[in-house]
């Protein structure tokens, strides 16, 4: 399975989904003109990634720790819906017995971003770690 790497633009975030390091991240501003077109490939990639986790667990008895880091500066309301879809998939993996953690990063002055993360966390079971950007 290949990594999914997308460079940031003025209105779309940087995305890095790497199946080798199992470190995933999305950072920057998210206000894509067509949110579906931007986020569907990420969702499809993650859905496929579940089979990697399954393969490692069943064949090598390895419990891979997966950290998904959100370091967003801004996201619009339709992006919130897609972020929820990503988090729901991670939640499903976590409930399926995989070691998944969400790392939610925000600027120290950005209470709104912190609160958004807390709101997402309340709706899900997957563990969230909150971190102030240094």
């Amino acid at each position: 399975m290949e990594a999914l790497l997308i460079e940031a633009t003025e209105f779309t975030p940087k995305v890095s989904l790497d199946p080798v390091t199992h470190r995933f991240g999305i950072s920057g501003d998210s206000r894509p003109e067509n949110a579906g077109k931007f986020y569907q490939p990420l969702l499809a990639w993650l859905a496929q990634y579940e089979s990697v986790l399954y393969f490692q667990k069943t064949n090598y008895n390895q419990q891979q720790k997966v950290i998904f880091e959100f370091r967003l500066e801004y996201f619009n309301s339709i992006s919130a819906k897609y972020i929820m879809e990503i988090l729901s998939l991670l939640d499903k993996f976590f409930k399926g017995g995989y070691d998944i953690q969400v790392k939610w990063c925000y600027d120290s002055m950005d209470n709104d971003m912190k609160e958004s993360g807390e709101d997402f966390a309340k709706l899900l079971t997957v563990p969230f770690e909150f971190s102030v950007n240094s």
């Binding site: 309301s77 819906k81 929820m84 709101d119």
Partner: peptide, 22 residues
């Protein structure tokens, strides 16, 4: 807002009804 996040559908205009609530 949370109910739309969890259960809402995205329309063909790329909207979910969250904007006005936001």
């Amino acid at each position: 807002y949370n109910n739309i996040l969890l259960n809402g559908e995205i329309s063909d205009k790329d909207g979910a009804g969250l904007g006005l609530l936001d």
